[in-house]
Design a protein around this nucleic acid. Structure first.
Lengths: 240, 240
DNA sequence: CGTACCGTTGAGGTGAGTCAAAGTAAGTGG
DNA sequence: CCACTTACTTTGACTCACCTCAACGGTACG
């Protein structure tokens, strides 16, 4: 085991998946690992480039963006420490169907396709685990939640906060929640399918109503119950 | 091999996947198959119900719909003959994350989880194939294409036609395309994130411009090039 | 201390949702 | 085969949330 292995400590998804595989295979994987650093704004991988391996975010944050066949750009996920990226394209033997851009400075572990696939061939249980993981990964589908038409920007913004709660929110002694978001207004707009100006206006509204307070990229939510209440202003939907 | 096996003839996805597996395992799977019939409007399976097996559409058409945590309903896929449904939830050991509703009368093959998983355990190559299939299935992500904000309903409708081209379009002698859609206006609206009235208006526009002509649920496209031209009126996107 | 990026604010235009009502197709029973 | 009901589709008028454009204020960083 490499002495630089910080992935286990940080709850790396991949390390959880390969737990229990024979030590020899594990070491082969470890040896093949490459660690890269990306600065804010850099692309970790790009859509339509070949998927040559599996990326695992050790530190920092990244955002996944998809450009469809007609040129529409859609951000659909924020990736945090420990999370894997790009495995869908890897197992699909396809080029990357999304781009990953560093939101903050990132340290990224990279495992080459050959060594990963080598382990898969000798360890069938691992294939099952990846199948399981892939099946539960909703991928770009998360984005749907955030861009249903007829849901106001204000509510979509609240949805985003709720989705990011586990990864970016922390509870303060007074029971309020403090977010430290790695996102600019523009990024938020990309995620909820809106424009920076509209994001600002929605923020003003939420502050006016005392639901959430934004200072720079920190968000303070005094009362989570009120945030949930906002989300429940969902449009009554019809029978189909 | 069961004499009622019509799946192979119709190019069933599952049958392609299990091609080449040992005959004994194949027969076990075949014996466990159940064939059900659903009428238009009936649910084939429902979101949040347990995923007890794999569904394979033999004939007819169905639509997959997802209701998110906040009650927003989103249709994201039309399923046609030969296509599998519900395998994502099956392999994720999760309840169904979508509902499947019959658009027309449907014949559905059902393979119980136990017999399918039995084969997976004895045939590792099959797990790899499912992994591959799952990785390439964009699932609800298809929906993203159809509901990017700031894309007019008219263009989203054209996107839908292009997506459904392979499955529902046929080329006539005069090089025009004739669609036979199993969708009502309401369904189209669900798929492109719009309302039946808006769908009608968009249809009127396309007819006015001679791009496509809708009669009941049949669509005639005299010149595919013009349809593509419509789609390329994509909004110029900025650098992020 | 300046440059560049980010964020905010305002004014104006519009695509599409909503509501309501009429028209059309489809299915049912006599 | 025709009344009748039901479901689907279309049309029009109205309204509004959000996009767009443009200008200004802040913040970060050299």
């Amino acid at each position: 085991m490499s002495s630089s292995n910080a992935c286990q400590a940080s709850g790396c998804e991949l390390m959880q998946l390969v737990s229990g595989v024979p030590e020899f295979e594990f070491n082969v994987l470890e040896m093949s690992r490459r660690v890269d650093r990306f600065e804010s704004g850099q692309d970790i991988f790009s859509q339509n480039s070949e998927a040559t391996g599996l990326h695992c975010l050790r530190s920092g944050h990244a955002m996944l963006t998809h450009v469809d066949a007609f040129g529409n750009k859609t951000a659909f996920r924020v990736v945090g420490p420990g999370e894997m990226m790009g495995y869908r394209s890897l197992f699909g033997d396809d080029v990357h169907t999304a781009s990953a851009r560093a939101l903050t400075s990132c340290t990224v572990c990279f495992f080459p396709k050959v060594s990963l696939f080598g382990i898969l061939d000798t360890t069938p249980i691992l294939v099952r685990r990846f199948l399981h993981t892939l099946a539960r990964d909703r991928g770009p589908a998360d984005g749907l939640l955030l861009r249903s038409q007829h849901t106001p920007v204000r509510v979509r913004l609240v949805y985003l906060l709720l989705i990011l709660l586990n990864d970016y929110g922390s509870k303060l002694p007074d029971n309020s929640i403090e977010y430290r978001l790695p996102l600019k207004r523009h990024d938020i707009g990309s995620l909820i399918g809106s424009r920076p100006e509209s994001v600002t206006r929605a923020i003003r509204e939420l502050e006016h109503d005392g639901v959430a307070f934004f200072r720079h990229r920190n968000v303070s939510v005094p009362d989570m119950a009120r945030l949930f209440a906002e989300a429940n202003i969902s449009v009554a939907d019809d029978s189909t």
